[in-house]
């Protein structure tokens, strides 16, 4: 933890400059003498503010949104292919998940009674605004799908609602990645291309896990396949994300985030393998695999959340990549200038 270190009283010329290397002599046209990953800061204080969100509320919201959204797709597939009990169970699960996720979102507001202000405007530049509208459209669809499945009434309305929820569900599962990435948080913004794929993989794993846990084994073949695809995607995308992050990837590998993300991988892969090998024959194995997949997905969300917080709390992750970007731009400009000169001469 950096804050323990940085809260110590000390002078800027000591601790405030981690690994400081004053460039000697002239500042203009100087050689690049600052070794990588050395950086200066103001008493080790964070440059940006970490999100004030509660992990339980917002990482929980990411998880539940994924579970609901992915679940609606599996429910629709089960509905279409006549896997009636899985379809019903998944519709109920999605309704429960989306209700809980909305509750988590409202709970996290500084002024919960003003939740309705979210629907005051529609702003494509605000993923939270887009998400609120998405939730407002998806929630009723998921509710109608579940209600009709449970009561057995209005089957045509139920089919329509199931279809609508299945179309909106994937958006609900992936937009939360944009919600996180559309910030100045280095561990999130840095992977703004990869995060949506990680989040849908995680959502697929969670909903496949739920389907394995609540559906009868004779209906669970699609869930087993989905779990396998999700696990492969989860591992591949995580690796791509860490590669993209460069030095910021430390926040994904170390500390609480590292533990959570490693656990997530183990649970997700373990769950998918268990489902593939034993999930068809053994109800107990299917339930265990499902539980592992659900837990793995939750760990992914809480892990990514923790990585974001860690990357915001240490100025290193803000300063070093920006410095490198500046130095790279400078080097490029200099090369271009030299090239132009050579051409002339």
């Amino acid at each position: 933890m950096t804050s323990a270190e940085s809260s110590l009283p000390r002078r800027a010329d000591e601790g405030g400059r981690h690994g400081r290397h004053r460039r000697g002599g002239r500042r203009r046209g100087e050689q690049l003498m600052v070794p990588k990953a050395e950086f200066q800061s103001y008493y080790g204080r964070p440059v940006i503010k970490p999100p004030s969100w509660e992990a339980r509320d917002i990482a929980g919201y990411f998880f539940l949104g994924g579970l609901a959204g992915g679940g609606s797709v599996l429910a629709a597939g089960a509905h279409l292919t006549g896997r009636a009990s899985t379809a019903k169970a998944m519709k109920v699960s999605s309704l429960a998940a989306v209700s809980l996720s909305a509750a988590a979102l409202v709970h996290d507001l500084g002024v919960p009674s003003r939740f309705y202000n979210m629907l005051r405007v529609a702003k494509p530049t605000s993923p939270m605004s887009v998400g609120s509208w998405l939730l407002a459209a998806y929630g009723p669809a998921a509710g109608a799908a579940a209600a009709t499945a449970v009561t057995g009434r209005l089957p045509r309305t139920g089919a329509l609602a199931t279809g609508a929820a299945a179309l909106l569900g994937p958006a609900l599962a992936s937009y939360t990645a944009v919600l996180a990435a559309d910030t100045a948080v280095p561990a999130w913004h840095g992977v703004h291309r990869e995060l949506p794929y990680l989040f849908v993989a995680s959502a697929t794993a969670a909903s496949a896990g739920m389907a394995l846990a609540v559906g009868p084994t004779r209906e669970n073949a699609p869930a087993r396949w989905a779990a396998g695809l999700a696990a492969v995607a989860d591992v591949a995308v995580s690796q791509a994300a860490e590669r993209r992050l460069g030095m910021v990837a430390q926040t994904w590998r170390e500390g609480r985030a590292g533990t959570l993300l490693k656990t997530a991988k183990a649970l997700t892969v373990g769950g998918a393998v268990t489902a593939a090998v034993l999930g068809r024959r053994s109800r107990i194995a299917a339930v265990a695999a499902g539980a592992a997949l659900l837990a793995g997905s939750a760990c992914t969300r809480f892990g990514v959340f923790a990585a974001g917080t860690a990357s915001a709390e240490d100025p290193k992750y803000t300063v070093v990549p920006q410095r490198e970007r500046l130095e790279a731009a400078k080097a490029k400009a200099e090369t271009a200038a030299t090239a132009a000169e050579t051409e002339k001469g």
């Binding site: 503010k49 500084g110 202000n117 910030t183």
Partner: peptide, 8 residues
């Protein structure tokens, strides 16, 4: 409404 999105 205190959503806190602007903060990070």
């Amino acid at each position: 409404n205190g959503c806190g999105y602007c903060v990070p």
